[in-house]
Design a protein around this nucleic acid. Structure first.
Lengths: 204, 204
DNA sequence: CCCTCATTCATACGTTCGTTTGAATCAAAC
DNA sequence: GTTTGATTCAAACGAACGTATGAATGAGGG
């Protein structure tokens, strides 16, 4: 236990609860109870609930960013024009792989990301930095090269579709439960998205 | 103004605020303020905040259900085996068309549906009834006939993908705003989804 | 031994929340 | 003109929330 373990335990508890109940649905007391810490520990270690969310989000997103970036580097080293499938795999794959520990938390991680990205409050989405912008722009450019016939707006629509579909396990279809997790979901999503991205432009 | 207008004005205000800020992010006071009604009117007309949400959801979903059902009826009357594109259009189209009034509220409607469907609290999704189940099962059977090579699980994954993509305007891609609304979004979504649904099965 | 400083702790503050209450209001029925 | 029943109103309830406070705690250095 390096500086102190309390900080990490709070991060773990917050990550789980934010994913399961959302930001607003999670009280600071619920986090500290699950973490076995004192209520004031959040204020001491993070400053506020919003900054705790930012810390959680950064810890989750950083390895994903790294994997997305490395994947694109790997593709660029091999060919100057990666295919759509390769790009989808490099971009969406890490969203299913979860955290660096390699545990089963992948499903929860993707849920957390979507919970954050789809939260209406700006407070919840105010943690991103220049790293996210850079990766987004690099992939956007690569997809634009791979799909030259697509208008910029429709390309943006489809890029958003990628994120939406990775969130698919967060959407309950008319109360039907479905355990869409793990490696199978990742493969299904890549199939689904590669076909969708590769569709010819819409005639308007 | 039939029984009283207050009830409708509360429904209108709640629909807008729930879509914009989510269920938890909307206080009963905010609803009644926007509606120009008294705080206690929600309790009087609906019983509780959760029942107000259920009333809002039912009012939004009913015409969509009707359109989805009618669309499938129309297809079934023409051919015994509708194509994937036709099914996607009949299912996803109404999700973009919004309410029967035909106003510009389509975008807000889809946002509302997704806000509800993606809310982690069961309380928020506890309003569905047998009508939704019936329509879901009919489309599931039709898609299964149109895509016989797909496993049941992967078909479910793709069906969920449809709902996820209709939620695409709720997902902010790394803080980039994008006005994905209106007829263009509907056409883009149908292109996107028809291609995705039609993809060959994933080899696992 | 004592001082220091980071951390943990119990406790409380002020606000906002959903809900409830009982009186006030008002048009329609008689 | 009075009664009735539905609706609206101001006010308050207790609970839960995020945050702040100041005293305890405890290990490490002098």
């Amino acid at each position: 236990m390096a500086p102190t373990d309390t900080r990490t335990q709070i991060l773990d508890a917050a990550e789980r609860l934010f994913a399961e109940r959302g930001y607003r649905g999670t009280s600071v007391r619920a986090v500290t109870d699950l973490a076995g810490a004192n209520l004031a520990a959040v204020g001491y270690h993070f400053g506020s609930k919003a900054e705790l969310l930012a810390a959680v989000a950064r810890r989750v997103v950083e390895p994903i960013n790294a994997a997305q970036s490395a994947g694109l580097d790997r593709l660029a080293a091999r060919t100057s024009d990666p295919s759509v499938v390769e790009l989808v795999e490099a971009f969406a794959g890490p969203l299913f792989d979860g955290m660096p520990g390699g545990d089963e938390s992948g499903a929860r991680t993707s849920r957390l990301i979507v919970t954050i990205l789809s939260d209406p409050a700006e407070e919840v989405r105010a943690w991103t930095g220049p790293a996210e912008d850079t990766i987004r722009d690099r992939y956007l450019a690569a997809f634009a090269r791979a799909l030259p016939s697509l208008s910029e707006d429709e390309l943006w629509f489809r890029i958003r579709g990628i994120l939406a579909v990775t969130a698919v396990d967060r959407v309950e279809v008319y109360n039907r439960q479905a355990p869409v997790v793990g490696e199978a979901a990742k493969r299904w999503a890549i199939t689904f998205l590669a076909a969708a991205l590769s569709a010819p432009p819409t005639a308007l």
